[in-house]
Structures are given as C-alpha cells and as structure tokens.
Amino acid sequence: MKKYFWLIPVLLFGGQAQAGESVVQALTGQYQQHGAGLADAAHGKEIWQQQHMQKKLKKRVSCASCHGADLRRSGEHLRTGKRIEPMAPSVNQERLSDPKKIEKWFLRNCKWTWGRECTTQEKADILAFLQSL
C-alpha cells in the first residue's frame, strides 16, 4: 500500500506538463484524418506572420497583430489593448491544453484575420509551430 504513495504527487503535478503535448498530438491526428498531411512547423511560422487585409478594420493584420512578435512574451489585443498571455506553451502551461478552446479560437481568429476558416493542414502546421517555441 505504502509503496504507492509516491504516485500522489506524480499524478498531481506530472499530469499538467504532459497535457499540452498530448492534446496537440490528438488534434493533429484528427486533422490528419480529415485531409492534413505531416505537420510542418516552418510553414506554420510563415502563415502566422502572413499579412491579410481585414475588411472591417481596413488594415492589414496577421496572427501576430494581437499575439505579438515574440510569442514567449505577452501580446495585446489590437483593438481593446487588453493583455493577452504568452502563446508559447513553454512559458505558459495553460496554452494548447484544451482542445475545445483551441478550436474555438481557430474558428474566430482565422475568420477574422484571414477572412476564412483555416484548413486542417494550416491548423496542424500552426500547432506544430507553437508547440516548438
């Protein structure tokens, strides 16, 4: 009985660090079942910085417009100025740990920033890019 007590702290604290990686793996798997190929972090980085015309704002924007140039530091909402916590999972453990949240923001931010939904390939590439930071 006693020899299993070490499991308690491991379960309590170890789970957290692992969560992000496995969530990204699972999502990438789903994207691949829906047409995506191998995830390409370099391509993810490229499209993250690509500028698109935002029609309502009449300005060119990219994913970096709110999340900032250095993803290890906090960003700022382009319109409201509200602080956005760092995107890199290496400095912000809460990032990429909740598939529903990731999908919700992909939907909103792709539509708003690019004027269309992201493809499964683009999502896989961006996740690979963010995970690599």
Partner: peptide, 12 residues
C-alpha cells in the same frame, strides 16, 4: 456574436 462590433466572438 459572429459580428460583434467588427470582431468574431462566436460561441458554441
């Protein structure tokens, strides 16, 4: 919510 003051704030 999909056109929320020019922002996309869609929810399930």
């Amino acid at each position: 919510l999909d056109d929320h003051f020019g922002e996309n704030a869609e929810l399930d």
